[in-house]
Simulated scan of single mutants.
Amino acid sequence: MKIVTPAVFRIGALALAACNQTASAPASTGIMTSSSGTGCNGEVSRYRAVMSNDLAMGHVNQSVYNRVDREIAQAETACAAGRDAEAVRMVNATKARHGYL
């Protein structure tokens, strides 16, 4: 039987203590989560939130944001008219055109 020396024991205890550390939660980016709506309304609101965040962070310029906003407004109109599937397709097409899929 091998005897554990105090130095080896302390190293093991430190390693175990490091495993029990908890990471802090990341800061909120302001993007809405999946609870921000369902169906086409949820798709529209989530993508608007992503685009607003990207504009605020400087990932897209104002002209791209304006173009996307016009396209999403059309999808929002289709959604309000009860054409859910069409609205979701429109959002997905806009995402694909601008590299968000």
Rank of each mutant, 00 (worst) to 15 (best):
M1N: 10
M1L: 14
M1A: 14
M1H: 13
K2Q: 12
I3N: 13
I3T: 12
V4D: 13
P6M: 14
A7W: 09
R10L: 12
G12A: 15
G12I: 13
G12Y: 11
A13L: 15
A13D: 13
L14V: 14
A15T: 12
A18L: 11
Q21I: 11
T22G: 02
T22L: 07
T22M: 11
A23N: 02
A23H: 06
A25C: 03
S28H: 03
T29E: 08
M32P: 02
T33Y: 02
T33F: 02
S34W: 05
S35N: 01
S35R: 10
S36G: 00
S36H: 08
G37V: 04
T38L: 08
T38H: 06
C40I: 02
C40V: 00
C40Q: 04
N41Y: 00
N41F: 08
N41R: 00
G42A: 01
E43G: 05
E43A: 05
S45W: 00
R46N: 05
R46W: 06
R46L: 01
R48L: 03
A49R: 06
A49Q: 06
A49T: 08
V50H: 00
M51L: 11
M51H: 01
S52A: 12
N53D: 10
D54C: 00
L55G: 01
A56I: 08
G58C: 03
H59I: 09
S63F: 01
Y65L: 03
Y65D: 02
N66W: 06
R67F: 10
R67K: 14
V68Y: 05
D69I: 05
D69W: 09
E71Q: 06
I72N: 03
I72F: 09
A73P: 05
A73E: 12
Q74A: 12
E76S: 07
T77W: 11
A78L: 14
C79K: 03
A80P: 01
A80Q: 15
A80D: 15
A81G: 11
G82N: 10
G82R: 04
G82V: 07
R83S: 14
R83T: 11
D84Y: 11
V88S: 08
V88I: 11
V88H: 04
R89G: 09
V91W: 05
V91D: 05
N92V: 05
N92E: 01
A93H: 00
K95C: 10
A96F: 07
A96T: 01
R97I: 09
R97N: 13
H98R: 05
G99A: 02
Y100F: 01
